[in-house]
Design a protein around this nucleic acid. Sequence first.
DNA 1: GAACGGTATTATGAATTCAAAATCAAGACA
DNA 2: TGTCTTGATTTTGAATTCATAATACCGTTC
Lengths: 231, 231
Amino acid sequence: MEKIQHRNLYREVADRVRELIEQGVLAPGERISEKKLCEQFGVSRTPLREALKVMASEGLVEILPNRGARVTRLTVKKVRNTYDVMAALEGLSGELACQNITDEEIAAIQRLHDTMLEHYRQRELQPYFRVNQQIHERIIAAADNDVLEEMYNNLSQRVKRVRYSKKMTDDFWKRAVEDHEAMIEALQKRDGLMLGRILREHLCNKLEVASLDGMIEEEGDDELPSRAASS
Amino acid sequence: MEKIQHRNLYREVADRVRELIEQGVLAPGERISEKKLCEQFGVSRTPLREALKVMASEGLVEILPNRGARVTRLTVKKVRNTYDVMAALEGLSGELACQNITDEEIAAIQRLHDTMLEHYRQRELQPYFRVNQQIHERIIAAADNDVLEEMYNNLSQRVKRVRYSKKMTDDFWKRAVEDHEAMIEALQKRDGLMLGRILREHLCNKLEVASLDGMIEEEGDDELPSRAASS
DNA sequence: GAACGGTATTATGAATTCAAAATCAAGACA
DNA sequence: TGTCTTGATTTTGAATTCATAATACCGTTC
């Protein structure tokens, strides 16, 4: 059955702006022109402004009084803080998942795991990441905690812009896969504490791989320090 | 120095609506009349509607397409889920705080602790809760993680409406104070794992004292199932 | 008396309008 | 040449307006 959901316009607009930010069309620190986006989306300023305010509460944009909205600039510290919290949430999801998960759900995750292993063997980075992400989402879903899921999705959205560097060496990759093997094992044993611990440390690994090199170290209140490469 | 901050109107409005919800002036499940609130605040519908949309993303209200906003109704499950996540966040704050906290900050918390003990001895419930809350806030602040603090504040706001039952017996209270004694000890030893564990379980106790009895068990999509006791 | 239908009223969603602040662009001046 | 005014233009913030969906009211029918 199709979900004929009359979502409010501001939600649609917010989704599209999120996409633009995620794809880097709207660069970090860039001032968001309401006029331009309205024309692009074919809507008036009202729903766009509502969307921007919601996104400000989500941490994706910042609103400067009388000076409009700009895309939040990621800093090393912000990303680190976000990953720390995400790790704690993933840890909780592991504990809860082991309490609630069904055999069928474990089997489904097992299948995803096998698919992921295949991508690993073929060294297909993008498909690997995609399936990897799905596994984590399944575990979060199995935790059966809406609030947890909501918080995790929010944080996940914020750091989606972080691109992973070429430092994804065989060594890191191998270790990540080993973590996943251990996760499956903990899941099958329904060992919540174990799964929690693995998930916490697993995500920490991801941070090490993230390319924070190019990212600015600390907050800058100034205008447009780096005009970035736009060609 | 006074912070002469020209905050946007929608933020002011949101704060005031949050107060109304927290104080129960706007009851759970109650439909929010834009007109009435606008007149009350002396603003147009634009900033109010922006505020409501932000609050929807904060989980305080729900927006039904073409049917306006209503105050989110707390359910037993929602509260439990929220507490679980808060516990995880508090646990993380304990670990991080032990890494970062200074002797001065510990001393300040120690002083708050002593004040709290005095309120405990005098059986002054409200002052006790207030200082108690301050201690937790100090630990969160000491963790030096903006994202953590933001998430925690958000969740905290959602369950502020939960009232504590008369089950706050001497026994529970004594146990809570003992937890706090242990916290101080862990802080001084800078034993992050220990402090984390205490904080997690501490919150579980709080959940037991929460008066969830009167609260509806599951979500109801209908109009106004329980008109609640208003006399 | 209860259920159904149709109209009037009200409330919401989104576009438009208007006032005020910020930005931009010249031109004056050191 | 570079900095500071001053006025024009643009952009933002918030009120207002307009179209549409939901609700309330009321008469009809069974």
